[in-house]
Amino acid sequence: MSNIPADAFFDTLALAAAAVLVTLAITYAVAKKVHRHNVIDVTWGLLFCCVAIASFIVSAGEGDDTRRWLLLAMTLVWGSRLAWHMAMRSRGHGEDPRYAQLLEGRGELGVVMMVYGLQGVIALIVAMPLVVGSLTSEPMGVLAYVGVLVWLVGIVFETVGDRQMAAYKADPDRGPVMDSGLWRFTRHPNYFGDACVWVGIFLITAEHWPGVLTIPSTALMVYLLAFGSGKRVLERHMAERPGYRDYMARTSGFFPLPPRR
């Protein structure tokens, strides 16, 4: 590959895949012990941390150090924050109804492939901008710093949105639907924030060839968040709650917009 040493690229993939596999195996063991597979939600962000660390290690002496450190730090901040948030949110609860419905009637092999194997493969695909960006030797320019700003927007949306939802759930006098703060402008500020995070990381990588070729990875993440397993599955479950369909009618489904009358 032009501008990317092929041996370092494949070494990074091998190390990243091994780290992801070990992390998923540990997650599966924990899931069997606690009798719920939604522990994978905690691991999801950590899978990207594994790829970022592998990319950082292998790219030493190959990629631009500023970009290498930046991609590592951005991914660790995002992934560890998400993992901690999911761990706190699921603490003391049983299996997520969405997982129970998804896995109903599946054998053990089907569960492993659907929950753990699929998410491992998706994480490796989505994380390709980390691999390519870490190995890019050209210095950072304007587009990369635009990517940092987009990433910051994403982190703010995720963090503020999650805190607002936590405060809503802790309020004994709350209404039937959370529709204030960022949740007034988008039904999924956390998903929108996730999308911004990965668009920002892509922009940092896409500045130099062949980084732009990783656009399918980012497109896959945005698609899953906006139209796929993220938003679609959650809203199918939430639509049965009183007032939620009215909330859907007046509030943007993804990109933040003023509420409709």
Rank of each mutant, 00 (worst) to 15 (best):
L47E: 09
I122Y: 13
M86Y: 04
G63H: 02
F48C: 09
M140T: 09
I57D: 06
D96I: 00
H37K: 09
T136V: 03
G94N: 02
A52Y: 00
L130Y: 01
G110N: 09
E108F: 00
V126I: 15
L82A: 05
V39D: 04
V39I: 05
L124I: 03
I40N: 08
G79T: 04
I53Q: 11
C49D: 06
G120H: 04
I122F: 15
Y99P: 03
A52T: 05
A100Y: 01
V121F: 14
R68M: 14
H37V: 15
C50L: 12
Q119E: 13
W84V: 11
W44R: 06
P129Y: 07
L118V: 00
S55L: 09
S134P: 14
L71E: 05
R89K: 02
I57C: 00
L82E: 01
I125R: 07
V58R: 11
I57T: 03
L102C: 09
L135R: 10
A87M: 09
I57Q: 07
S80Q: 13
M88T: 14
E108P: 00
V58A: 08
L72G: 09
L47F: 05
Q101L: 14
T136P: 03
L47G: 06
L118H: 03
P139D: 04
L102F: 11
R68V: 15
G92T: 00
E95P: 07
W44I: 05
G110F: 09
A73L: 13
A73K: 02
Y116R: 05
L103C: 07
L47V: 10
F56D: 12
I57G: 01
R98Q: 06
W84C: 06
A60Y: 13
R68Y: 14
Q101K: 15
G79N: 06
G117D: 03
T136G: 05
I53K: 12
R67K: 12
G107F: 12
L70R: 02
W84Q: 02
E108H: 00
V42D: 01
R81I: 10
G117P: 04
G79W: 07
H85T: 01
S137Y: 11
W78M: 08
R98V: 01
A54H: 01
E104D: 15
H85D: 01
F56L: 14
G105N: 11
G117T: 00
C50N: 14
